[in-house]
Structure formats: C-alpha cells, structure tokens
Design a protein around this nucleic acid. Sequence first.
DNA 1: ATAACTATATTAAACTTGCATATAGATATG
DNA 2: CATATCTATATGCAAGTTTAATATAGTTAT
Lengths: 112, 112
Amino acid sequence: MRKHCPRIVIENYYEPCILYLLSRGPSYGYKIQQHIETQLSCGVNISNVYRCLSRLHKEHCVTKAHEPSEEGPDRVVYRITREGKTLLKDWIQDLNKQKQIVNKLINSCSEL
Amino acid sequence: MRKHCPRIVIENYYEPCILYLLSRGPSYGYKIQQHIETQLSCGVNISNVYRCLSRLHKEHCVTKAHEPSEEGPDRVVYRITREGKTLLKDWIQDLNKQKQIVNKLINSCSEL
DNA sequence: ATAACTATATTAAACTTGCATATAGATATG
DNA sequence: CATATCTATATGCAAGTTTAATATAGTTAT
C-alpha cells in the first residue's frame, strides 16, 4: 500500500505562483521561495523555483538583472514582462477550469 | 512566447478520477476514458489511463478481471479495494488543500 | 472488403521532480 | 578567530511521468 498521494498538484506548479508574485513587483528566487511558503502555505523545492525562473526568462516572460544585496550575496532580480502577464492570465483561466473539476470530484466523493 | 499553459493539473492526475469512478462501480480502461471526458470534461490520454490502472493494481488498490464483451474484444474489468478507497480518501483531503491554494491564487489575481 | 469502433498495452523520446552537491558572501555565536 | 547559520544561485543525476506512435485484435457498419 502506498504511503500517500505522491504529488499535490499546485506544489509542483510554481509557474502561476511565481508569475503572480512577480506581477506584484520585482523579486528573486530565494525570496520567492519564502513568499510561496508563507503566503500560499506550500512546500517549495528551491531547485524548481530557479529552474522555473530560468524557463520563464528563456521564454521572455520575465527579465533578469543582477543587483547587490545588503544582507548577503548578489541577487538575480526578475521582473514580469507583458508576455508574462498574458501567460498569467491564461493560467488563471486554466486554474478556474481546474477548480470546477476539483469541486466536482470533491462533491461527488463527499456523497460516498 | 509559449502557446499556452503546458499542463492543466487534473488532466494529468487521473488517479483520483479513476478511483472515484471505480468507487461507483466496476469499470475498464476504455470506458473510464470516456467517463472522464464526458463527466469531468477533461482531455485524457488513454495510455495514461492504462498505466494508472496498472499502477493501482500493482499497489493492490484495484482488482483485475478479464471479462468478455458483447460489443468488442474482451475487457479488463477493475474493481476498487478497501486500500483503494483509503487512497481515494487521502486524495480528497489533498484536493481540498489544493482547492484552497488555487482559490487563494485566483482571488489574488482577480484583484490585479 | 474495408473502414470505423471497441479494447488493451508497450516503446521511445522528452520532460519534470527531488535530492544531492557546489559555490560563495554575510552575519552571529562561542 | 573559527565555525555555524543564513542568504543566494545553480547544476548533475537518478527516478519517475507524459505524449505520441505503434502493435495487436475482435466487432460492427457500409
């Protein structure tokens, strides 16, 4: 018997979370990780945050800039682009669709 | 610019869908595919349905039985086990948690 | 006959994930 | 002053997942 459901979905879909956070202002990997963990109460694998940011940059959804820090080493600060905002909108539509499906499943199962 | 969000979550998480359908009665791969598509309006890759059923069987969450069909070739009919029902319950809990996160994201973004 | 539908399953390539590891500056503690 | 902890970014590898293609084969309709 398996211990548990292997993956909780949203935890593996950093993209909309990161795009959302960046839509509220520039940020960088380390800080984004902490925001997701505190604001969304999601476990985060830091590797995936950096990988996701890389991908978004390659796809022109964010810009990249090296900036000094007062608390530690330099940061790579990301800013969302117009393309990134479009992608976020698409994500929200998909999440809405998904929400309906999840609701259908949960409601159906609660009747069991 | 990427065309679209690459994956909508639930479409790739057949497991709770399949477990739910099986909790309502025995079924088989081909029929499950159609049920997910019609009842949940989800696109389904049939390969993944069979693979998911295989995995569930390997983990003793479903039983397997070859049964003849009147409309085509034999079917492999699956039935959910007690372990499968437990797994479904775990899934529902996780989906509830996920739903909250998705709501938080959607609501935050709708303010933009 | 032949196409379309029913039905199951595997292969190969591409992709994703988690964990480990590497690097390195800044700060705190003993 | 040495060492640990925190801040910060990034990649390699093994394992797992997904998609598309392919193989097989019985049944039904035209």
